[in-house]
């Protein structure tokens, strides 16, 4: 990458917008995933009885839907990011690349 392109991209307000949006979403979702997982680990470590309690009186415990929820949440969060990145962010990125060529 030559200096010209570099300065052109860096001074492009769209680039700042892209960096801001993408970085923010990335960290937000990461923190959410970490909070869900380490929240789960902390409950396991300090209050395992919560997960071992019966769900609505049957044999199935609270831990089963919680576990399934975490698995599904991982999938859903990646879906949210990919949707946003592959449409909105990529469009913005495309414009930045075009602008840089001129």
């Amino acid at each position: 990458m030559n200096e010209d392109i570099l300065t052109r991209v860096q001074s492009n307000p769209k680039f700042k917008e892209l960096v801001h949006k993408r970085t923010r979403l990335g960290w937000q979702l990461s923190i959410l995933m970490l909070a869900i997982y380490y929240g789960f680990i902390l409950v396991l470590a300090f209050a395992p009885n919560v997960l071992g309690a019966s769900l609505s009186g049957g044999t199935t415990t609270v831990g089963i839907p919680v576990g399934i929820f975490i698995i599904i949440s991982a999938f859903v969060l990646t879906g949210i990011y990919v949707r946003k990145a592959n449409t909105e962010f990529d469009q913005l990125n495309q414009q930045i690349v075009e602008d840089a060529k001129q």
Binding site: L29, I70, I71, A74, V82
Partner: peptide, 12 residues
């Protein structure tokens, strides 16, 4: 679950 949750973070 421990194996799975690394993946979203890798993506983000």
């Amino acid at each position: 679950i421990g194996f799975l949750v690394g993946w979203p973070v890798i993506l983000f």
